[in-house]
């Protein structure tokens, strides 16, 4: 992948160029969180390249939590999906897009709403420079910088320099359109970047040492279904579903119809959580997972066993959003640790 060196001012120029042709979302620091907001002309967004991942998952921009997807009997018109540039998401977020694409863009019945947004999405991701105590991407086979594609441009902040990595044809085009002053990077810079990335990777690894999560965590997850940790965490869980809703990789939803007159309705695609008792319920009120312990196990098994079997990667990118969101302080790393016992 092509890499160039630019100055901070050039990054601003890139963002302004993107803002002219698309909606632009940038991260801002809000207390201890990184929030997202619409870019305004006077913002100075390059200053927040250095943060950790934003609070909201990227999926919010591809399949909104509550979205109209059909009307009856008259069909709804095609949706508008204006061009959108997302700036500042980290590798955990760009990594999860491969799973969403896999599910939502299958050949036979692609989700046309997702597809439209996906086609019009431009991603400028950033290397992680800071680490939150909830970050654990290294424990699920990933890195705090992009390794799996799914970005158009990626920015690495190295001392007082910025390295742009181009991840797509659209990325090349955007650079050309912004007429950035791109400089070749030397081998020394390349090495320094590698070193910096190694260092941040070590930091994520080190802070997760105590959990001792096995590289092949899918094996104990499959074999140790009776692990006590599921029942133990079920004691604390309040079934709010927050872990699923903020999860980068969770994609579950249900279709809800709202009556709008005789034999007419509007249909909405609404995010759902497998932690809710009604999630898998069928007519007659039967459910295959009546116990919360079973639902917690299902969440872990789906992410670390079933999806691994289907796609050869985990349905977890180690972003730690579920840990931040949980009102009962349930840490998914402790669940994995417990499964290994």
């Amino acid at each position: 992948m092509d890499q160039y060196k630019v100055t901070a001012g050039e990054i601003n120029r890139l963002l302004k160029s993107q803002a002219e042709k698309s909606r632009l979302i940038i991260p801002i620091e809000e207390g201890e969180q990184v929030e997202l907001k619409e870019f305004r002309e006077n913002d100075n967004p390059s200053l927040i390249v250095d943060s950790f991942r934003p609070y909201d998952p990227l999926k919010t921009f591809l399949m909104s939590p509550f979205e109209e997807v059909a009307t009856f009997p008259e069909k709804m018109s095609e949706i508008e999906a204006p061009n959108l540039t997302l700036f500042g998401f980290k590798a955990c977020s760009t990594n999860h897009i491969r799973l969403l694409d896999e599910i939502m863009l299958d050949d036979e019945w692609p989700d046309v709403f997702y597809r439209k947004r996906r086609e019009n999405l431009f991603i400028i991701s950033c290397d992680c420079v800071e680490v939150r105590d909830t970050c654990f991407c290294t424990e699920v086979g990933l890195k705090p910088y992009p390794t799996t594609g799914n970005f158009d441009l990626n920015i690495s902040h190295l001392n007082d320099q910025f390295i742009i990595t181009v991840g797509s044809e659209e990325g090349h085009r955007a650079l050309a359109e912004a007429s950035l002053n791109l400089q070749e990077i030397s081998d020394e810079i390349r090495e320094n970047l590698q070193e910096q990335r190694q260092e941040i990777t070590e930091r994520v690894k080190n802070q997760n040492d105590d959990y001792g999560i096995d590289e092949k965590i899918h094996e104990p997850v499959r074999e140790n279904r009776d692990a006590g940790v599921f029942a133990e965490k079920a004691e604390d869980c309040v079934e709010c579903g927050g872990c699923n809703l903020v999860c980068s990789s969770c994609y579950c939803f249900y279709l809800a119809d709202r009556e709008v007159g005789e034999e007419a309705f509007r249909r909405f695609r609404v995010w759902d959580s497998c932690q809710y008792n009604a999630y898998a319920r069928v007519a007659g009120d039967e459910t295959p997972r009546p116990m919360l312990m079973q639902r917690i196990r299902h969440r872990i098994a789906h992410k670390f066993d079933y999806l691994k079997e289907s796609f050869d990667y985990y349905g977890c990118v180690g972003c730690g959003r579920c840990i931040s969101a949980c009102p009962a302080d349930i840490d998914i790393r402790e669940l994995l640790q417990g499964v290994q016992k």
Binding site: Y251, F253, H302, D305, Y306, E309
Partner: peptide, 10 residues
């Protein structure tokens, strides 16, 4: 194959 509800294993 998207909404997740009918999952059995993979």
């Amino acid at each position: 194959g998207k909404c997740g509800h009918c999952g059995i294993g993979p």
